[in-house]
Design a protein around this nucleic acid. Sequence first.
DNA 1: TGCAGCATGTAATTTGTTACATGATTAA
DNA 2: TTAATCATGTAACAAATTACATGCTGCA
Lengths: 181, 181
Amino acid sequence: MDVKTVCLGMLTDGPASGYDLKKQFESSFAHFFAAGYGSIYPALSSLSASGLVECEEVPQEGKPDRKVYEITDEGRQFLLKALENPSPCHKVRSEFLATMCFAHLMRPEDIQTVINNRLEDIARYQEMFRQFESEEMCDWPEGMKFVLGFGKAIAGTMQTYINENRHLLADEPSAKVATGQ
Amino acid sequence: MDVKTVCLGMLTDGPASGYDLKKQFESSFAHFFAAGYGSIYPALSSLSASGLVECEEVPQEGKPDRKVYEITDEGRQFLLKALENPSPCHKVRSEFLATMCFAHLMRPEDIQTVINNRLEDIARYQEMFRQFESEEMCDWPEGMKFVLGFGKAIAGTMQTYINENRHLLADEPSAKVATGQ
DNA sequence: TGCAGCATGTAATTTGTTACATGATTAA
DNA sequence: TTAATCATGTAACAAATTACATGCTGCA
C-alpha cells in the first residue's frame, strides 16, 4: 500500500485537499506512515487522472485555488480491493537501532545524546496520543482507535525499555557508584 | 544511515561476503533494517570504490569467486563520523496499521485474516529472539543485546495489544455471546 | 527429480525525498 | 518585522525493490 492508497482511504472520511491530508499524515498517521507534499500532491494528481477521485477547485483570494478531492465509486472499489491484501507488511527502518548496534565504537556521551533525543521523540508522540484521547476520539471508527492505542502501547514500551536498559550501553557520567565517601 | 553504512558497520565484526551480510540482515537486523542482494552488492561495490573496504577474491570450485570484504582504516573513520549523528531516525511504515484504519470498510473475516497473519509474523520474530537468547549472545557487544532486547520487548507488546484489542475491530464469528444455553 | 543452499551480480522500475518556486494573510 | 499558516506544485535526485541472469553441490 503506497501513499496513493492511503490518501484514497483518508478521503473516505470526506472530501479534503492535499494540505488537509498532510495534516493527517503529521498527526494521527505520523507514527506509522510518513508522507510529505512531494508525494501527496503527485498522488492526488494520479488518483484524479485514474478517475478514483474527483477534484473541485475552490477559488480563493490571495491563495492558490483550494483543490478539494472527493473519492468516486470507482475509487471506493479500488480501495476495497487494496484492503483485501491478507498480509499487509509492517516495516521498521531504524537508524537509531542500527546506531546502537555499534555503540561500542562510540563515545559514551554521544550514546547518551542519541538516547536522550530518542526519548524526546517518543515523548512527543505520547503527548500527541494524550491529546487525541482527550478530544474527538469518540466519533472515530474503531480501527482508528485500535491504531492509536497500538501506537501508544508501543511508545510506552520503548520508553520503559530504553530507560531500564540504557545502562547496558554506557554508564551515565554522573552515575558514580557508591564511593563510601 | 543507508545500507552502505550498515554494511560497513557489520564489517567491523570481521571480514565477510555480501552473502554473509545478507544472512545478518535476515536474522539479527531483520526487525529494524531490511536489505536484499539488490542493495547489498551495489553497496559493497561502492564502498570498495571509495576505499572504505578492501576486497579479497577467494576462488572456489563450481561457484563464483567468494568476495570477502574487510573494512579499512578509512572505512572505520567514515563509520565513526556516521555514528555521530545525534538524532538517528526510527521510522515505521505499516501497511498493517494503515489497513486497520479502514477496517470499518472491510469484511470481518478479512480483518481476522489480516490480524492472524500479523500475529504469525510476530511469532516468527519471537522465535528468532528466543534462539538468539539460547545461543551465542554472551559474546556479542552490549549494543547488540540492547537492540535484540528492544525488538523482543516491542514484539511482546504488539502481540499482547493485538490479542487484547482485536475485538474492537471485529467480533470473531464464533464468539457467541452467552446464550444461557 | 527437484529443491535448498551457495554465490554473484545487473538493469529497469518504482518510490519517495529534497530542494526549489510562489505569494497572501495574520498574529506576536 | 518576522514567523507561522494557508496553499499549490515541479524537477532533480537518491534509494531501494524486483525481476532477470547464471550455475554448481548436496540432500531427500
